[in-house]
Design a protein around this nucleic acid. Structure first.
Length: 546
RNA sequence: GGCCCCGUCGUCUAGUGGCCCAGGACGCCGCCCUCUCAAGGCGGUAGCGCCGGUUCAAAUCCGGUCGGGGCUACCA
C-alpha cells in the first residue's frame, strides 16, 4: 500500500479532513423520533411521477414526526445533465405543493447539489485510501468489458472482485508507475465481503431481509478531472445522508439489491447507517405484461403529463396515496390527504398506473369544487397551456361561472364532465361565442334529417322562441314544433313505425342541441339556453336556416 | 445466467388461522331515469398462480414450483 503522503498528493493540498465536515454539519437538534428524509432526483430529464410519489411520502413522514424533508440534486453524471430539468422540478414541486423544507439556498447542510460537494467526497475517499479501505484502479473500460465477457462465459457473477480485481492488490511500484504516467484512475472500495456470506438487515416496508453480502469493489470516485472528482451514487449516498443527518432513506425498489454494499460503505466510513424503505416501482401495462414506467418511452411517466393535461394536484396526490396505502383509498379525499402514510402499509408489489381510475377520482374531486374555484384553476391552467381559452375566460368570467353552474348548482348530483382542465374546452367551450362556430343545415352532426326540414324547423323555432325559465315550458316549444313537423311524440312511437316519421322528439331535440352546442351531446338544453341568453340562442338556431 | 423483491377479481386493494363458498373501489355488462351526454339508482360479471405439507380449520403458516418485476455500469 502506498504511503499516506502519496495518496494525499492526489488531492488538493488544502483539502479538509473528515473531522472538518463532521463539525461543519453537526447532528440536528430535533425531537426524539423525528425523521429526516430526503429526495434525490437526478436532473437527467423530466421529473418522474414516481418521484412525486416518493416526495409525498418523504414529506408526510418527516412532518408528522417533527422532522425535515430535504431536496438534494444528484447531478454527479454531468454527461446526462439535461437543460431545464431543475426548472421543471421546481414547477412540479409547486404544482403538487411538495416544496422541500431544505434545499439549495435554504438550509444549513448544503450545498444541496452533489456536483458542488466534490471536496467533501474527496476528503472521505482520501481517508479510505489512507486506511487501505479503498484503492486506486487503473483498469480501462476495454479491460473491464473483457473481464465481464470472460465472467459471463465462465458463468461467474459479473463484477470486480477476487482474481478479477486486478488492481486490488497491485504492487505499489506498478501503481506509482501508472500515477507517474498520468494514467486516469478511479477509486474503488475494498469490499470486506466474500462470496457466499449472507447479511441480514431491516427494511421498513418489507421487514427483516437477507441477501448475499456484497463482494464487489465498486467505484466510489469517478475518474474525471483531478481538481474536483465526483462520486458514484453509492458513495454520495453514504457521505451525504450521513452529513445531512438523514435518518430515513426512502427510495425506489431498484436500490434494494445494493443495500448490502451501502451498509459496507457506511461501516467503512464509520457512519451509523440510516433506516431504509424501498417503495415498489410504478408500473405500466404493456401487451406482454408490465414493466416499470419508463422516462424515455412513457409520456405518463412525466409529471408534466399530469400538469399539462390539468389533473388537479390533489386528485393526483389522492390517487398516489391510495396506491401507497390501500386503506387510504377508501377514505374521502380530504380525509385521505390528512391521514398519515405508514411505511408498513406500503405494498411490496409494483402497482400499474390506472389512468381511468385517476380520471374517475379527478372527476369526483372537481365535482366537489365551487364554480369560482374551478374557474380560478382553469384560468391558471389555461394561462400556460391554452392561451386562447385563457383570454376568453378572462373576458367572460360571468359567462364561465354561469356555464359551470349548469346542472351543478342546485342539483343533487352535479355534472361530472370535467376530469381534467384540458376537458374544459370540449365540455364548456361552446358556451363562449368566441369559441363557437354556428352550425348550418346540412352539417353532418345533424344526422340524416333532410336539410329542408332542418331549415323549416329552425325557422319556426326562431320565430316563436320564448326565453322561458321553466324547463318544461322551454321543452314544450320543441314538443309543439316536433308535432307540427311530423316527428313522433316519443322514441317508442317512432320505433314502432319508423317510416312514418322523420324521427321522434329525440331527433327534434337533437337538432336544437346541435345548433346550440355544436355537439350531439350536451348538458340540459333548457339550462344551456338560459345561459346563452335569448339573442345568442336565436343567432345559433338561425344559422340552421341558412 | 446469478442475486433480490413480489404474487387475492381486468386494475388498485381489504384480509395477520375460524367472522371469507373472500369485502370495497375503478372498469365492463344489463336495467331504471331520460331531450342527448356526463352523472345518479339498482343488479350482474370476475380473483386467493400451482403442487404438497402443518392444522379440527389455511387466502392467511411452511416447503417447493411457476409467474411477474428489479438489479447485475466510472447511470442514478
Amino acid at each position: 500500500m502506498l504511503a499516506s503522503t502519496e495518496f494525499d498528493a492526489l488531492f488538493p493540498p488544502d483539502l479538509p479532513e473528515p473531522g472538518h465536515w463532521e463539525e461543519r454539519y453537526p447532528p440536528r437538534q430535533l425531537p426524539a423520533g423525528a425523521e429526516v428524509t430526503r429526495l434525490g432526483p437526478s436532473p437527467t430529464g423530466f421529473m418522474h411521477i414516481g418521484t412525486i410519489y416518493i416526495a409525498m411520502i418523504d414529506r408526510d413522514i418527516a412532518h408528522r414526526s417533527g422532522g425535515r424533508y430535504l431536496l438534494r440534486i444528484e447531478d454527479t453524471d454531468q454527461s446526462r445533465q439535461v437543460e431545464g430539468a431543475l426548472d421543471q422540478f421546481a414547477r412540479a414541486f409547486g404544482y403538487f405543493d411538495l416544496a422541500p423544507d431544505e434545499q439549495e439556498g435554504d438550509g444549513d447542510y448544503g450545498p444541496y447539489h452533489q456536483s458542488q460537494r466534490s471536496a467533501i467526497y474527496m476528503s472521505y475517499a482520501r481517508q479510505l485510501l489512507r486506511e487501505n479501505k479503498a484503492y486506486l484502479c487503473f483498469a480501462t473500460s476495454e479491460e473491464l468489458a473483457d473481464i465481464r465477457k470472460r465472467q459471463q462465459a465462465a458463468k461467474l457473477p459479473p463484477g470486480y472482485y477476487g482474481e478479477w480485481a486486478i488492481w486490488r492488490d497491485a504492487p505499489d511500484d506498478e501503481v506509482r508507475r501508472k500515477l507517474a504516467e498520468g494514467t486516469p484512475c478511479v477509486v474503488r472500495f475494498r469490499s470486506p465481503g466474500v462470496p457466499g456470506r449472507r447479511v441480514e438487515f431491516g427494511e421498513a416496508i418489507r421487514g427483516q431481509l437477507s441477501a448475499e453480502d456484497n463482494f464487489n469493489d465498486v467505484v466510489i470516485l469517478k475518474s474525471a478531472g483531478p481538481a474536483d472528482r465526483l462520486p458514484t451514487y453509492h458513495f454520495a449516498h453514504a457521505v451525504d445522508d450521513h452529513l445531512m443527518r438523514v435518518s430515513l432513506v426512502i427510495r425506489g425498489e431498484e436500490w434494494l439489491p445494493s443495500v448490502p454494499m451501502h451498509l459496507q460503505l457506511f461501516a467503512a466510513l464509520g457512519f451509523e447507517p440510516p433506516a431504509y424503505a424501498h417503495t415498489s416501482l410504478l408500473m405500466k401495462q404493456i401487451p406482454g405484461g408490465k414493466r416499470k414506467l419508463s422516462k424515455r418511452k412513457d409520456p405518463e411517466a412525466s409529471v408534466d403529463f399530469y400538469i399539462q393535461a390539468g389533473y388537479p394536484a390533489r386528485a393526483v396526490l389522492y390517487y398516489l396515496r391510495g396506491l401507497a396505502s390501500g386503506s387510504l383509498a377508501e377514505l374521502p379525499l380530504d380525509e385521505a390527504l390528512a391521514a398519515p402514510i405508514r411505511l408498513a402499509d406500503l405494498g411490496g408489489a409494483g402497482p400499474l398506473i390506472d389512468q381511468v381510475k385517476l380520471e374517475d377520482i379527478s372527476a369526483d374531486h372537481i365535482a366537489t369544487l365551487r364554480n369560482a374555484q374551478i374557474l380560478a384553476a382553469m384560468r391558471h391552467w389555461a394561462a400556460s397551456y391554452d392561451p386562447e381559452l385563457a383570454s376568453v375566460l378572462e373576458a367572460e368570467q360571468d359567462l364561465a361561472l354561469a356555464a359551470l353552474a349548469v346542472e351543478r348548482d342546485g342539483v343533487e348530483n352535479p355534472r361530472k364532465d370535467l376530469r381534467k382542465w384540458s376537458d374544459f374546452r370540449s365540455a364548456y367551450g361552446f358556451f363562449f361565442p368566441g369559441l363557437f362556430t354556428p352550425v348550418r343545415a346540412g352539417d353532418e352532426r345533424l344526422g340524416s334529417l333532410p336539410a329542408d326540414l332542418v331549415r323549416a324547423f329552425a325557422a319556426d323555432f326562431v320565430a316563436g322562441y320564448q326565453d322561458t325559465a321553466d324547463p318544461q315550458e322551454w321543452f314544450g316549444q320543441i314538443r309543439d314544433l316536433a308535432a307540427k313537423h311530423g316527428f313522433a311524440a316519443s322514441a317508442k312511437q317512432y320505433k314502432q313505425a319508423p317510416d312514418e316519421y322523420p324521427g321522434s322528439i329525440r331527433e327534434a331535440s337533437q337538432l336544437i342541441r346541435v345548433a346550440l352546442t355544436g355537439s350531439t351531446r350536451s348538458p340540459d338544453l333548457a339550462s344551456v339556453a338560459r345561459v346563452l341568453d335569448r339573442d345568442e340562442v336565436v343567432r345559433r338556431v338561425s344559422a340552421l336556416t341558412q
